[in-house]
């Protein structure tokens, strides 16, 4: 009877998809650099306990196979961050296509139950609208000082202390962008970005603008 129970339990563990994904994340030691739960202490890599809210699955799967730099100046907690020296300069390990798919599934399951802001499907912006919002992005809210983005000609412009937004339209979910703008402390207790109390319309406009920033628009 006891052996039968062990067999049953083992079968359940093998068949449970969440646990088998978790074991791959453990195997890849993601938690050495990333927080997978809000209760953990700060770590050198970006937090992943809300990865399912933040990232677009297609981008995440690509990134895991072919990692590229998003924070040009390194993590904000790096000791050499303000000197332009990346202490944690090791490249993110690249995974096989199969492993990337499995880790993506696992990460996309890590979500906050409620987001501060939910954004419906965004309407495309006309060039005129984009130019007006770019003005807000650069002059009203000064985002360009710390984040790289694309100007109307598709050229990369902007500071490097914050994560690059050049491909943010492919990387981030619109609801997460709006939620971060509304309540950054929901996600991170300490960020170097100013807190804005902007009107809902302004927040939506910026979210729409950020969604247009894509690598394929880079010239």
């Amino acid at each position: 009877m006891k052996n039968f129970l062990y067999l049953l339990m083992g079968g359940w563990l093998l068949c449970n998809p969440m646990l088998s994904h978790a074991s791959l994340i453990q195997e890849k030691k993601c938690s050495e650099c990333h927080r997978l739960s809000k209760d953990e202490n700060e770590k050198s890599g970006p937090d992943l306990f809300y990865a399912g809210n933040k990232f677009q699955a297609s981008w995440l799967k690509q990134y895991l196979q072919n990692p590229m730099t998003i924070r040009i100046a390194g993590g904000t907690g790096d000791p050499g961050f303000l000197k332009g020296i990346q202490a944690n300069s090791q490249k993110h390990p690249a995974l096989s296509k199969k492993d990337a798919g499995q880790v993506t599934k696992e990460l996309m399951a890590l979500m906050l139950l409620e987001l501060p802001e939910e954004v419906d499907l965004l309407e495309p912006l006309t060039k005129g609208q984009k130019a007006k919002i770019k003005y807000e992005f650069e002059r009203t809210f000064s985002c360009i000082s710390c984040h790289q983005s694309l100007n109307l000609a598709g050229k990369v412009r902007g500071g490097i202390s914050g994560p690059s937004l050049v491909n943010a339209g492919n990387r981030l979910q619109a609801s997460w962008v709006a939620s971060w703008l509304k309540s950054p402390r929901t996600f991170s207790s300490k960020s170097r970005m100013p807190i804005y109390k902007m009107e809902d319309e302004a927040r939506l406009r910026l979210t729409q603008f950020i969604a247009t920033l894509k690598n394929e628009n880079k010239r």
Binding site: F141, S142, P194, Y196
Partner: peptide, 9 residues
């Protein structure tokens, strides 16, 4: 305009 408002931070 590069300098943002820090009044809410």
């Amino acid at each position: 305009p590069c300098m943002p408002a820090w009044g809410n931070t």
